[in-house]
Design a protein around this nucleic acid. Structure first.
Lengths: 293, 293
DNA sequence: GAAATCATGTAACGTTCGTTACAGAAGGGA
DNA sequence: TCCCTTCTGTAACGAACGTTACATGATTTC
């Protein structure tokens, strides 16, 4: 399940080796330095990189140009991308021993990989959440006098649904923004400064979701955002941002870590006003027992 | 470059954690973003980092200053050093050197408890799944000539929504049984022996969900059940049962382990017919690019 | 050995960066 | 509600950046 996306995009290192025999003496020095401390050396400034190799700045630029980049920052961007990918790849090449009865069977592999990748995501994500930030978000939802709106994208709408069902048992005035995005404007009408928008948006950030959040922000709603580590643009308008890992090395991104983070938040909201929640649940059960008005 | 990189020097992440409670709202957003995508986010320019988080450049500088750096480039240098060190020793506990210090703050406790409880649930649940069982379920969905129906209860409907969105990208004839249960009978009309019902039902097993599954079973539909360790009554009619742990010691049950199990199943279905799925996604993207008939 | 070609450094350009001072906005307490 | 404190963005500055044109030096070719 690996290395199917590399065919279209060669790495910087590959580009260098490809053009290796056309490089001049100074350029070879640069190439060796970069490959020797890959890719960190290429992330320095032109001047620094040049000085370290004992060449001039223009030589560095000619080098970048020769191996196929429009500009030096262009090359850096690519190096950055590779580095980022490399940093989070250790999740998949799991170092732990095989668990139990899974050995041999191909589906056992899958189970094991998904388990470890997801656990890694959860650990990394929640370990980096600031407790105070969580506390503030909990209070924002728990003490909110207005309405709490839930919104998600294509895959994350499931999280919005989940949050909706839980919050509804804990407090009144919980609304889910659902259906076709063309109709969201109606929900937007009511949103104001006393309201909170809990929005889920991970990569392939959805334009309609972003637009809704931005509009809500302009109407002074408080926004809590669940997103991935690269941050949805909504982060700009959000009061609280919770970035979680979503990559498992498989075809699709995972919402498991987001789910755990969400459940943590929900549990926190419940604990924030325990007696109110308990009273509400009790009331709800009474109404359920005497239904069909 | 820096020979003074000592073991005694605290990492940037640690410095952030240390000053966490003195940070302002905007600064916390920066902290969250940096820790969420550590350390890459901090290697961007001030302007980029600021914009991504929706704050101004000076706020970023005040942040860097507050956590103990003389300048922004100063902080970047340190992040670079950490990164370089990590890259040079990929074998020695590469990706997770820091288990953040949540102690002290009550929400830190909560984060930690939820993390560990959930991970325990996932490990236990997936370790006990029979790979052959998973394989069969994958083939059942992947090779199903009829329709795949999704159904969930109050809280598990979120999982049904999630599965629906994924399966829809992988194959045709995927339907979600939604809305008021009184209207489910209409869906039931179409269900037959060529169809598969993927149903989610955890404790406080919902009567209407059970009834639907039983009816579908009588009409010879194949049932795949996601439930908890105590097994929903639907297990009696189900061809494949996946029991997962849902307890976390908190007020509410958790769907996190179910989510991981579901994602594993979905990944398996995707891998089962990779070329078909890829063709379908491609087709879908073409249709999306030429919308508004 | 002279001329041509290529590689490289110098110097200057406009741009973008990090940084600072200051004024306005937001939030909390009486 | 008002005031005071704290927080935050705007605007301006110098410095450093990537980039380019051009001159110098090295190397090759006849």
């Amino acid at each position: 399940m690996d290395a199917k996306q590399q065919a279209t995009k060669p790495t910087v290192a590959e580009q260098i080796t490809q053009k290796a025999d056309t490089l001049t003496a100074s350029e070879r020095k640069l190439a060796q330095a970069l490959l020797g401390n890959y890719p960190m050396a290429g992330l320095e400034t032109v001047a620094t990189f040049a000085e370290r190799c004992g060449v001039s700045a223009p030589t560095v630029l000619r080098f970048a140009s020769k191996i196929g980049f429009d500009s030096y920052p262009d090359m850096q961007a690519r190096l950055r991308g590779e580095l980022e990918a490399r940093l989070q790849s250790p999740l998949t090449r799991s170092s732990l021993p095989r668990s139990r009865n899974h050995s041999g069977h191909p589906m056992g592999e899958l189970l094991h990989e998904m388990t470890e990748a997801t656990i890694s995501n959860i650990r990394t994500s929640l370990a980096n959440i600031n407790p105070a930030e969580l506390q503030s978000a909990i209070e924002l939802i728990g003490d909110c006098k207005g309405s709490v709106y839930l919104l998600g994208g294509r895959f994350t709408s499931a999280l919005a649904v989940y949050a909706y069902e839980h919050l509804r048992t804990m407090r009144s005035h919980v609304r889910r923004v659902s259906g076709q995005s063309a109709k969201w404007a109606e929900d937007l009408l009511d949103i104001g400064k006393r309201d909170v928008l809990l929005v889920f948006d991970v990569r392939r950030y959805q334009a309609d979701v972003i637009a809704f959040a931005e509009a809500a922000s302009r109407q002074d709603a408080k926004i809590i955002l669940f997103t991935d580590q690269w941050l949805s643009p909504i982060a700009q308008f959000a009061r609280h941002v919770f970035p979680v890992r979503i990559e498992t090395g498989t075809t699709w991104d995972s919402s498991a870590a987001s789910m755990v983070m969400l459940e943590t938040l929900l549990e926190g909201v419940g604990q924030h006003n325990p007696e109110q929640v308990r009273a509400r649940i009790k009331h709800l059960e009474i109404l359920r027992r005497a239904p069909q008005s």
